[in-house]
Write a protein that binds this DNA or RNA. Structure first.
Lengths: 165, 165
DNA sequence: TCGTGCATATCAGAGGTCTGATAGGGGTCT
DNA sequence: AGACCCCTATCAGACCTCTGATATGCACGA
């Protein structure tokens, strides 16, 4: 029995050592994993995964767009989008309609998909509130700005098309 | 300036609509994806993925622990850990030694793994600096605290109370 | 001693994510 | 017109991640 008991003091989630002494990337990863997990759990009985919810929401917001466009919006590759769209189509939540022009395939949410989405929103609201809980408006603003900055600064995306002139 | 007929003005990454008007979970996901992608790119020529780097770092910090323990530290399931460990072992970065006692298999970093890790640290430091760039000490503190809070608050982990530092 | 319960490991299967490679459609430039 | 390039879609392969189910070792109490 000797030596079995804790040669090291293993840190708990909030502890100093936890996260290689505070790598921001590590903390970001953990926070995202925890949040994704909670979302998945909240959506589980609706038969929808977190990425499916994301894609469905985007297609609903921008109907008729090609998959590549939605992929850019979601910061996902077209290949990943294809997988998610395939499963959503199989489940009857959205449709892929091959258009006359070019190769671009239009994505649209079905009525069943919209109903599903409406149910989802009820589940996500509490999570969102829980994430913002304990933050003052200024603090929340700091967090939001940081998240957006990291996402844009590190993205190779370059989806420009600045039609602003 | 050709103005390709866009029925909607698709938002760019920093835009208001981008992220369903600011779901924190969505922003968190995007920031993590971007950061993970950058890390993966930085580590690509060393033949190491981001999760592999994480696990290797943890095993180095807490040598001799069973996989389940490392999994808890990384906020991963034992199954996921098994996959990562299998690939790391195949690449000669760590060893799995079956001990006399029980079923617990000790994980340890090899010399090659340590060398790899040392190289990785040189790559991750700039990323870390880039993530913290533009944040005042107070703001960085806010962000860190929020990330830790989300990770602990949403984790099913259950290893308990946050510290009081 | 036996049984229960907990921790550990592992198999099976589903889904998400990437890189790399292949291919077709459409517009632009010469 | 023809060549070129960009955008789109898709196949193939690898890795990461989860849930669910199964098996084994150990500690504890009856």
């Amino acid at each position: 029995m000797e030596g079995k008991s804790l040669p090291y003091a293993l840190p708990r989630p909030g502890e100093r050592k936890r996260g290689m002494d505070g790598y921001l990337g590590y903390l970001l990863r953990q926070a995202n994993a925890a949040s994704s997990h909670a979302l998945q759990e909240a959506l589980a009985d609706l038969g929808l995964t977190a990425p499916q919810f994301l894609v469905l929401t985007l297609v609903k917001a921008y109907p008729g767009q090609p998959a590549a466009q939605i992929a850019r919006l979601a910061l996902l590759t077209p290949q990943t989008l294809t997988v998610i769209v395939r499963n959503l189509e199989r489940d009857g939540a959205l449709t892929r309609t091959a258009p006359a022009a070019g190769r671009a395939i239009s994505l649209n949410v079905t009525r069943a998909g919209e109903a599903l989405l409406a149910q989802c929103r009820g589940r996500t609201a509490p999570l969102e509130a829980r994430m913002a809980a304990g933050l003052s408006p200024e603090e929340e603003s700091v967090v939001r700005r940081w998240l957006v900055r990291v996402a844009t600064d590190f993205a190779v995306d370059g989806d420009g098309a600045p039609e602003s002139s």
